[in-house]
């Protein structure tokens, strides 16, 4: 069984260490990982702007590229949700390749939790950590229970991080309020977006968190931009980096 690593465009270009950490975690757990050449983007920026005709060819490329693999794993809930929940608009429902890729694409934590069934990780992270739950991971992929929903769900991201030695959890007041990234929203509604992000950072900082961790680097790119500008005493890290044993400050 070969798993294809799907590296989102912005992670490839701006946060390569997140992809490296993802690859290392998977390899260490004995997963046979391939990195198919020629990957770019899932098409979400265009899709979320409503530009469907610009999305379609990008979506078809992705499906063609990954169709021959047993599964696809990606360290970004948002991109996985795009493939799983929104690709139907661009394919014939009967299209076998589409059916395969859309049903076999996993977010990293989801794959480790549901498919690999990880119970042990030999890594340490002796720090105060707070979790930023990305909206798409939470409400589109259901990696945990959103605070509005009364349907009990286990929190897969947190469960995985609990396998890491030394993490001291810090709880923000609002467990899953949006950080305000939202793709092009961050630029279209720049004022509101920044205010949303500042509120998240303040909530995590006030509780004494050293590391704001998330399974979605896009949220963290936005939050990190604000943290650096306002010189807040907190750092961001992708969950994959913590799971792979990176020290504090790797992002």
């Amino acid at each position: 069984m070969t798993v294809a690593l799907f590296v989102p465009c912005y992670i490839d270009q701006l946060y390569p260490d997140v992809a490296i950490a993802t690859l290392e975690v998977l390899e260490r757990l004995g997963v046979d990982v391939a990195y198919p050449d020629g990957q770019t983007c899932c098409g979400q920026p265009m899709a979320n702007t409503g530009c469907e005709t610009d999305t379609a060819p990008v979506a078809r490329r992705l499906v063609d590229l990954f169709a021959d693999f047993d599964a696809v794993v990606c360290p970004s809930g948002s991109c996985v949700s795009m493939v799983r929940n929104h690709y139907a608009a661009y394919f014939d429902a009967e299209d076998a390749k589409f059916q395969h890729v859309t049903s076999k694409t996993y977010e990293l934590c989801e794959y480790l939790h549901d498919v690999v069934g990880v119970t042990h990780l030999d890594v340490k992270f002796p720090h105060r950590v707070s979790l930023h739950q990305s909206c798409h991971g939470l409400r589109e992929l259901r990696l945990g229970q959103s605070s509005e929903s009364m349907t009990p769900r286990e929190n897969k991201v947190r469960k995985l991080l609990n396998l890491v030695d030394g993490i001291e959890w810090v709880e923000p007041d609002r467990p899953d309020d949006c950080c305000g990234f939202g793709g092009t929203f961050a630029v279209n509604e720049a004022d509101v977006s920044a205010e949303m992000g500042r509120a998240r950072i303040a909530d995590h900082c006030d509780k004494g968190s050293e590391v704001l961790a998330s399974a979605d680097m896009s949220c963290l790119m936005h939050l990190q931009g604000l943290i650096r500008r306002e010189k807040n005493p907190i750092q961001v890290m992708h969950v994959a980096q913590i799971l792979s044993g990176r020290p504090l400050g790797a992002a």
């Binding site: 590296v7 992670i11 490839d12 270009q13 701006l14 946060y15 390569p16 260490d17 992809a19 490296i20 690859l23 990195y35 961050a186 630029v187 720049a190 004022d191 920044a194 992000g197 790119m221 936005h222 990190q224 931009g225 604000l226 650096r228 500008r229």
Partner: peptide, 25 residues
Amino acid sequence: NVWTIARELPEPPKESFHQWHRRHR
């Protein structure tokens, strides 16, 4: 650059993941 009105841009890495992967895997 509307992104930078309130935020810093990410610090650009020297190589992309694609480049790293070519060298290491």
